[in-house]
Amino acid sequence: MRRPLATCLLLALPALAQAQAADAPAVSAAGSLLQVFVGLVAVLLLIAATAWVAKRFGIARGGSSSLLQVVGSASVGARERVVVVEVGESWLVVGVAPGSVNALTTLPKGTLQPPASPISGAPFAARLQQLVEKRREK
């Protein structure tokens, strides 16, 4: 008697599994894609917000120290630069190229003065008016 009962149960299992599968809601591919897209947008917004907060509050990048500061730099070629670095009470002028950094000279610590330009003293509107008048004279 146990064998026919076990056989009936084994035959009924696929029918029970099919009935449970019919009751379960179908998973929508569009719903899954929408969920992934919303998650991706949320992560990107979180990264952007973190970068904005770091920039806003001046959070320094790792590796920066108060002992060494870049005073200024100028490009002298496609990939070459001359950089003035403040170290303690002196300035080092170094040449930077791909794969090399060479010390050019050492200077005593100084103060920065803005470069003199003919336009810097005059407001934009006044300088524009001067240029227009010069053009009319020609």
Rank of each mutant, 00 (worst) to 15 (best):
M1G: 15
M1V: 10
L5I: 14
L5D: 11
A6N: 13
T7Q: 08
L10G: 01
L10N: 08
L11R: 08
L11M: 10
A12P: 03
A12E: 05
A19Y: 04
Q20D: 06
A21R: 07
A21F: 11
P25I: 00
V27C: 06
S32T: 13
S32C: 10
L33N: 13
L33P: 01
L34K: 13
Q35H: 10
V36D: 05
V38A: 10
G39D: 11
A42W: 00
A42T: 08
A42E: 04
A42S: 07
L45C: 02
A48M: 08
K55N: 12
R56E: 07
F57G: 07
R61A: 12
G63P: 01
G63D: 03
S66Y: 09
L68N: 09
Q69L: 05
V71T: 00
G72C: 07
S73P: 03
S73A: 13
S73C: 07
S73Y: 14
A74F: 06
V76L: 02
R81Q: 11
V82G: 03
V85K: 02
V85I: 03
V85R: 03
G88Y: 05
W91H: 09
A97P: 00
P98L: 02
V101F: 00
L104S: 06
P108F: 04
P108V: 08
L112R: 12
P114T: 12
P114Q: 06
S117G: 06
F124I: 08
F124Y: 15
A126W: 13
A126T: 15
A126V: 15
L128M: 06
Q129A: 14
Q130V: 10
V132Y: 02
V132Q: 15
R135Q: 14
R135V: 06
R135I: 10
E137C: 04
